[in-house]
């Protein structure tokens, strides 16, 4: 039950884009067609599912205060949490490099359409903050952390596909020239964010 709660909560209530505005750069830049944005959404979800559990283990057995106690009792007071930013980003950068190689090998079409935004998943705030939120909220076990990562990824996927679909339709509408493109996308995202606020306090 706890798993389902975390899952639903991370998709809707704590949606990475509409509640925290994380990963906005690639969200704004890649959301021109549904197809590319779905590809990017899947890639981000995939990276989240791998990196969050790895970082969870790192945090639990190396970085937290007293986490090194399993090595020897003398290390029980060591607190390495100030290193967590560097460790997390190193894991993420390595995994992203791997995903890039896999995508290039198995789906060159997707690789070409994502272009620069594939390596930039490494600096996608949604991925990094997945690990940081995991650390901050202190999930009880690795299962909860993984479910949280999956939920956040799916939430991000839904958001980018939704805005891409809207932008495809917007191309035929009459918008003041100065507002076309980025401007109107910002405003629509704001309105969608307001709509998503209605999930607030939702609990299973």
């Amino acid at each position: 039950m706890e798993y389902i709660n975390i899952f639903i909560k991370s998709i809707f209530v704590d949606n990475m884009i509409f509640a925290f505005f994380l990963g906005m750069c690639s969200y704004l830049a890649v959301s021109k067609t549904v197809k590319t944005s779905a590809g990017l959404g899947i890639a981000v979800t995939f990276v989240l599912i791998i990196t969050v559990p790895i970082n969870y283990l790192l945090n639990k057995y190396f970085l937290q205060e007293g986490a090194l106690a399993w090595l020897s009792p003398a290390l029980a007071n060591v607190d390495l949490s100030f290193l967590s930013l560097i460790m997390f980003i190193a894991v993420i950068a390595a995994i992203v490099q791997m995903v890039e190689m896999i995508v290039e090998k198995f789906s060159p079409a997707l690789y070409n359409s994502l272009g620069i935004f594939l390596p930039l998943i490494a600096v996608n705030c949604a991925v990094m903050s997945g690990s940081l939120f995991m650390q901050e909220r202190g999930y009880a076990n690795i299962g909860e952390a993984t479910v949280f990562a999956l939920g956040s990824g799916i939430g991000w996927f839904l958001a980018i596909v939704a805005i891409a679909a809207i932008r495809e339709k917007l191309r035929y509408s009459h918008i003041p020239p100065a507002l076309r493109g980025v401007g109107i996308t910002f405003i629509i995202t704001g309105l969608m964010g307001l709509a998503f606020m209605s999930f607030m306090g939702f609990k299973l």
Partner: peptide, 26 residues
């Protein structure tokens, strides 16, 4: 204070900014 309003404000600033600088329009 709600976060979505920040997005809408940035959207409005972009609107104002682009109508001052026509060459930036898409």
């Amino acid at each position: 204070i709600m976060p979505p309003m920040a997005l809408i404000l940035v959207g409005l600033i972009i609107w104002w900014h682009r109508s001052k600088n026509k060459d930036l329009c898409e």
